[in-house]
Simulated assay, not measured.
Amino acid sequence: MTEISVIGGGSWATALVKILTENKVRVSWYLRRQLQVEAINEEGINPDYLDFVKLDTRYLEASTDLQHVLRQTSTALFVVPSAHFPALCEEIRPEWLRGKSVLTSIKGTVGKENNLPSAYVSQKFAIEEMQQAILAGPCHAEEIAMGKKTYMTICSPNDRLLQLLEPCFSNRYVHVNLDHDICGIEYAAIFKNVIGLVCGMAKGLNYGDNFLAVLVSNAIHELQILLEGLYVPKAQIGRSSYLGDLLVTAYSPHSRNRTFGELIGRGYSVEQTQTLMSMVAEGYAATQGLFQTAKELGLNLPIVNTAYRVLYNHMPVAAEFKLLERNIT
């Protein structure tokens, strides 16, 4: 495989394009803003995200024409916020994806039914799971941009697709793990963003490392409850694609979800926080989706409940954490 269409113009998409073009994979890249496209094609720089990264334009063509981008390759990689994914899909005709492999790296539930991104793609475009793969962490775009050692996971039930994708993303600083558990790892990627928000809230409220360690330990237990409730086959929760992704989001200063939560903990409203941040924190929308999923399954997830009550019921964050203190061990 030597060609991939990338849909999305943020920091994570930019980091993945960096990896692909360094590996001499030809990239057809869809971005909405014409100024981004011009800067990328002329200078190899995304002016809005990771603008210190120089991309190899020999293997890259950016465009605002979605149909053109999708028709250039046999594989489409979607890297957009989950809240924006349904509207984007409305712009795509099913025939543009017919016969293609679809790779998603979207870390939130999608639509009113709170679908996984892979399930949404299956329903919307009649693309079988064997034609799909997901790309997961633990990794931050900023560290990939700096060439720091990173481990990521590609999941698909299709071993042939995994073998085709693996060399596209592996390089001297990126190690790629292969897995078959699309459902489990997709849910883990969504869940960890909610936990990142709550860890940020704790920091904003001036809780210390002792409390944070207990919070994260309980979060791991909640993830296990969630996966068992979803009847996910025995997930190896200690692996980097589960636990590692949760930990890096909970502790890293690069985590936009942790930053979002910290501002909430310091007393900012959701609207003020969204205005202050230039990037989307997936955990905000993911909180609503996970809360509804847990409710439908009859699961008690105190940390997820706390996030929901603070973000959507507008309950005082300090009071909610006092309640949370009594519901974790």
Score class of each variant (00 low, 15 high):
6 V>Q: 05
11 S>M: 05
13 A>L: 02
14 T>N: 13
16 L>Q: 11
17 V>M: 14
24 K>T: 10
28 S>A: 15
30 Y>T: 01
30 Y>A: 03
30 Y>M: 07
33 R>Y: 12
36 Q>M: 15
37 V>N: 12
40 I>L: 07
42 E>I: 01
43 E>W: 13
47 P>K: 11
50 L>P: 03
52 F>H: 13
55 L>N: 02
58 R>W: 04
62 A>Y: 05
66 L>T: 07
69 V>H: 02
75 T>Q: 00
75 T>A: 08
78 F>W: 04
83 A>I: 11
94 P>H: 04
96 W>I: 04
96 W>R: 00
97 L>Q: 08
100 K>V: 11
108 G>T: 07
110 V>A: 06
116 L>I: 05
117 P>S: 10
119 A>T: 12
121 V>Y: 06
124 K>W: 02
126 A>L: 03
131 Q>E: 04
147 G>I: 07
149 K>Q: 10
151 Y>S: 10
151 Y>A: 07
153 T>F: 07
156 S>Y: 12
157 P>Y: 06
160 R>C: 11
162 L>T: 05
162 L>M: 09
164 L>W: 09
166 E>C: 06
167 P>N: 13
168 C>R: 05
170 S>F: 11
174 V>W: 13
177 N>S: 08
183 C>T: 15
184 G>D: 15
185 I>T: 14
193 N>S: 00
197 L>E: 02
204 G>F: 00
208 G>P: 01
208 G>L: 05
211 F>R: 08
214 V>W: 13
217 S>I: 15
220 I>P: 03
222 E>L: 00
222 E>W: 01
227 L>A: 03
229 G>K: 02
231 Y>K: 13
233 P>G: 01
234 K>R: 14
235 A>V: 06
235 A>F: 06
236 Q>N: 15
238 G>D: 13
238 G>C: 07
239 R>N: 09
244 G>I: 13
251 Y>I: 03
253 P>L: 09
254 H>P: 01
254 H>N: 08
256 R>V: 10
256 R>W: 02
257 N>E: 10
263 L>A: 12
265 G>C: 05
268 Y>E: 06
268 Y>V: 05
269 S>N: 12
271 E>Q: 15
272 Q>L: 06
277 M>W: 04
280 V>E: 09
281 A>D: 06
286 A>R: 04
290 L>C: 08
290 L>A: 11
292 Q>I: 14
295 K>E: 01
296 E>R: 15
297 L>C: 04
298 G>L: 10
298 G>V: 13
302 P>N: 06
303 I>V: 13
304 V>R: 01
306 T>F: 00
308 Y>L: 01
310 V>T: 02
317 V>I: 11
317 V>Q: 01
318 A>Q: 08
319 A>M: 02
326 R>K: 11
